[in-house]
Computed example of a mutant assay.
Amino acid sequence: MIKSPYDQYRKSSVQTSSPGQLLIMLYDGAIRFVRTALDGLGTKDYEKVSLNLGKAQTIVSELSVTLDQSSDIAANLNALYEYINYLLIDANTKKKPEPAEEALGYLKELKETWVQASKMVSSSEPGVVHG
């Protein structure tokens, strides 16, 4: 089966990304799905809402499952991921944008935190030239 160049690029970018970059990609996906669901709420396209909030929940659950339980912040992050999933479920069942908007805010804030952390880690790696 022939894959599109975009599919090949996506697969390649996932396979060659650092753990930090993969984490940011997951946040990007969850953010995109919540935004799409919010668009669906605006147009009363509830199938779109359900599908996209479900995809966002799957990503948030994956983020939770893959936490390094030996780290000090894992319990706090896990609780936040659980709350985000609660908000996504609430938005989906009640078809209200407010819980999804709150979840979106947390996801955007977490993504930005990881972007900054990733920059700090990559700038401290010896022998790496940054442009």
Rank of each mutant, 00 (worst) to 15 (best):
S4W: 11
P5H: 08
Y6A: 11
K11I: 13
S12T: 14
V14G: 03
Q21G: 09
I24G: 09
I24D: 08
Y27D: 13
Y27G: 12
D28T: 13
D28F: 08
G29S: 14
A30E: 07
F33M: 03
V34R: 00
R35T: 02
D39A: 04
T43D: 03
K44R: 12
D45E: 13
D45M: 00
V49T: 13
G54Q: 15
K55P: 01
A56Q: 05
A56R: 05
A56H: 04
Q57R: 15
I59R: 07
S61K: 13
S64K: 15
T66E: 12
D68H: 02
Q69L: 11
S70Q: 12
D72H: 05
D72A: 14
D72V: 09
D72P: 00
A79H: 07
A79D: 14
L80Y: 05
Y81W: 07
I84F: 02
N85L: 01
D90A: 07
D90R: 15
A91E: 02
A91N: 03
N92H: 07
T93V: 11
T93P: 00
K94D: 11
K95M: 07
E98C: 00
L107F: 07
L107W: 06
L107K: 09
T113S: 10
V115T: 10
V115W: 04
Q116S: 08
S118A: 12
K119H: 05
K119C: 03
M120S: 08
S122V: 14
P126Y: 04
G131W: 05
